[in-house]
Nucleic acid binder design. Structure first.
Lengths: 268, 268
DNA sequence: GCTTTTGTTTCGTCTGACGGAACAGTGGAC
DNA sequence: GTCCACTGTTCCGTCAGACGAAACAAAAGC
């Protein structure tokens, strides 16, 4: 037989599963622009109305979307995605193990504590408890924050292998901007200090007027899988206090890492 | 033409969109049993391995799942679902509007505050802030709780139209059990009292040792779209305090409802 | 009234999902 | 070492069923 040099077969291992992908796109778009109707949705997605309609009805039957009553139906997301996302075992065990540690840290500092995990171009806040003194230095759960401007982000970056560190840093700078001038050389030195000290600092680089200190949560192999941080209004964390809180958060990070290792060991 | 009496066509308006539905089932199952591999997943879902594999890879490409490295890959959910679910505009604006009200209530009572929204056979906790005194009377965000045994649930039930009230109550009793004997007649009277007083009470009916008071969040048409509640260990909320906190939570509910109405008016 | 929206349904075409089977590693048991 | 029982991954012929233009119905402007 004649070989086929020109007709080299498109090299995908698995078919693209179009209905699933499009359904998920529909779902995500509804969540961003809800409440929204079929026609507008079809326009924004540049898809035929019939296809969008089909996906909407299927997602509705599956319990992910709900159509509002009335003559001109709009679609909104249910709590289904959140429930699954929040209670999905993975993040959930980390959160459960973290809560006591976070409370202890809150009581020691009287400030707000955040728990975040890395997720491609940023960190996602997965748990938060507030300090008794109020102030608006908290992030909502689910918020995505950059690597390069937050205490948690720096704590994670500092413990990544160099190539991953560069990659994450690049993506982070690209997707979120910077509030302050960014010097690669200075930043590299700062990350080295983070490793040496055991904690990271952000001084009004992300939220204006917020200073925070953070520490990584590490696996037994030393890979960062999350970070814990203490946030306060700038005037409540002057230079001397910063190191005290830094020590506290570093210990909390180690404590939580230990608990995690013990938990993993128990499971097996 | 001859009519077709025998061959009455299967009455579904829209095709079942199998790949989407199965993909979502795969996702949900992974979230429940993660970390899990293809074979085990295929066994629990009673689906061919190849089909499951296809869905997993597609969900991975779409960013909803991640495969753990190593020779025997396991699948886990990413934070994607949580981020979308939590930041989906609907719940998000309610949460944002609620936080200041919840903080105020926390400061007034020094106890933990929950915000929940109704979702078919129960309520889902969407926000929570803890009181400064600790104690373990908190529910995790995303937790589904029953209508009939919680303060928030009773507050919502009391403000539903009778037929919906019956339906939700029935489903709630069916899906979650009861800790205490349940008397329909007494319960109906209790709901009437809730409307009259403006707040509801649960006395160790859900969590042993937890007493809570709750109030509904109502639309301009009087439909309940959520509830706010104050929870405390039983010994910190004796009978006289219960009414004080009840008044506070009722006011907080009204306050939050007003803010919501103003917000809706501004948007249009 | 007419026109332009909206949501919903139908239906013929042909893509691409399905799933059995084969393949390729991995880890134990003996 | 060899076997065996398991993993995860890939292939490919068949045909269910997703696709989307078009027609429909029902509001909302004008």
């Amino acid at each position: 037989m004649a070989s086929e040099p020109t007709r080299l077969r498109a090299r995908y291992r698995q078919p693209p599963m179009k209905p699933l992908i499009q359904g998920l796109r529909v779902f995500e778009t509804v969540s961003e622009r809800q409440p929204i109707g079929v026609s507008e949705l079809a326009r924004t997605l540049e898809l035929p109305k019939a296809s969008v309609q089909r996906a909407l009805v299927a997602l509705g039957d599956a319990g992910w979307l709900r159509r509002t009553p009335g003559p001109s139906p709009r679609w909104v997301v249910t709590q289904h995605a959140m429930v699954i996302g929040m209670l999905g075992t993975g993040g959930s065990t980390l959160r459960e193990l973290a809560l006591p540690v976070m409370e202890e840290l809150r009581d020691a500092t009287r400030e707000s504590i955040h728990l975040a995990v890395p997720e491609d171009d940023g960190l996602v806040v997965v748990e938060r408890i507030e300090g008794p003194q109020g102030g608006r230095q908290i992030e909502p759960i689910g918020r995505r924050v950059p690597y390069h401007a937050t205490a948690s982000g720096k704590a994670v970056l500092a413990h990544l292998v160099p190539e991953l560190r560069q990659q994450r840093l690049r993506e982070s700078l690209q997707h979120h901007g910077t509030r302050v001038a960014f010097e690669p050389a200075t930043f590299a030195l700062e990350l080295d200090r983070v490793v040496a000290l055991g904690y990271s600092v952000t001084d009004r680089e992300w939220r204006p007027d917020v200073i925070a200190v953070g520490a990584p949560i590490l696996t037994t192999r030393g890979e960062p899988i999350g970070a814990i941080s203490v946030s306060a209004p700038a005037d409540r964390m002057p230079a001397p206090l910063r190191d005290d809180y830094g020590q506290l958060v570093a210990n909390a990070g180690k404590d939580l890492s230990d608990r995690l290792h013990r938990h993993m060991a128990d499971a097996s």
